[in-house]
């Protein structure tokens, strides 16, 4: 997604190394995706539904 739009950035975070972020975003299982600090996506999702969820962050 970051590739398709300059407004979008994407980070992969190794959860075990950043316990502060794990606490901050209440990561209790992986993968967990946090979009704009407010939309949370738990687990892996099919592309279309993942994209829809990500876009909820600016809806």
């Amino acid at each position: 997604m970051a590739f398709e739009n300059a407004h979008i950035t994407a980070s992969a975070v190794a959860a075990v190394e950043y316990p502060d972020l794990v606490r901050q975003y209440r990561v209790t299982g992986v993968p967990k995706t946090v979009v704009n600090e407010r939309v949370e996506i738990l687990g892996a999702e099919p592309e279309a539904s993942f994209v829809a969820h990500v876009l909820e962050s600016i809806a």
Partner: peptide
């Protein structure tokens, strides 16, 4: 130079005009 996403996804994402920051937490 290709995201590999579907045309539908590309169209949706292409219209985004404000910042989106995606963080994916994972383990090895």
């Amino acid at each position: 130079g290709d995201s590999g996403l579907s045309d539908e996804s590309r169209a949706l994402i292409g219209s985004v005009d404000q910042p989106i920051d995606i963080q994916v937490f994972a383990t090895p």
